[in-house]
């Protein structure tokens, strides 16, 4: 059984009362410990699929099980709590809180847990060490480069030790060299820490770092390929 299982997953949006179908009966299976890249042109439904996996949005039809939870049967509140424990989210634009320094940004998701202050701080510092930013923990986002900000965002995503990391264009705003650094960190988290990673990307080079690539087009999975 996969850590992500989607069957006949569809999602429609409504724009001014007009139905806009985005996903059409997507079937998907991601095994625990896999690194999967979702590719496809803009509007193909990649980010929508990622949002559904994160429990940020609800499918119009079909079933979706992630980390053992049937997301379609859960309330928004239950999905939110489930997300804290099981999902780490990485965004294209990092989305750090500008008024918090690096370690406090990383600590943020831990506020939702029952951990004490000392343990929260230790875990946040450990996560920053993993992404190689232990020496920048007191820096504010505006004092960090784009790559460093993204590393802080990755540390924030993994600080709760989630089973799955969902990354939406994590290198989309970075130059090639910095992108390679970030992809290296994701590969490390997948290889050494056993994190399941689903990454949306436009970048074929980035996608090649994944073990499997899924191509979406007009809301359907049209191609799957695995690395040799």
């Amino acid at each position: 059984m996969g850590i992500v299982e989607a069957r006949g997953l569809s999602k429609d949006y409504y724009r001014a009362k007009t139905r806009v179908p985005v996903l059409h009966g997507v079937d998907l299976n991601v095994s625990e410990g896999e690194f999967v890249a979702l590719m496809g042109p803009s509007g193909s439904g990649k980010s929508t699929l990622l949002n559904l996996m994160a429990g940020l949005d609800e499918a119009t039809s079909g079933t979706l099980s992630v980390a053992g939870a049937d997301l379609g049967s859960m309330s928004e509140r239950a999905r939110t709590k489930w997300r804290t424990r099981n999902i780490g989210l990485i965004f294209q634009l990092y989305n750090l809180i500008p008024v918090l320094n690096a370690v406090r940004n990383v600590e943020l998701p831990l506020l939702l847990t029952g951990l004490g202050r000392k343990e929260r701080r230790q875990r946040a510092e450990l996560a920053l060490d993993i992404v190689g930013l232990g020496d920048r923990k007191d820096h504010y986002p505006n004092e960090l480069s784009g790559g460093q900000e993204q590393r802080v965002a990755i540390a924030r995503a993994l600080v709760t030790d989630p089973r799955i990391l969902l990354a939406d264009e994590p290198t989309g705003d970075l130059d090639r060299a910095t992108s390679e650094e970030i992809l290296g960190i994701l590969a490390l988290l997948n290889d050494k820490h056993g994190k399941t990673i689903v990454m949306v990307t436009h970048d074929a080079a980035a996608a090649r770092r994944a073990g499997r690539r899924l191509m979406l087009e007009s809301g359907r999975v049209v191609l799957q390929e695995s690395s040799a």
Binding site: R83, L89, F91, P109, R156
Partner: peptide, 16 residues
């Protein structure tokens, strides 16, 4: 608004 949305995405409940 966007920052508050990020907090929601990170797992902060609507009430929090």
């Amino acid at each position: 608004t966007s920052e508050l949305g990020i907090q929601r995405a990170l797992g902060f409940t609507a009430g929090t």
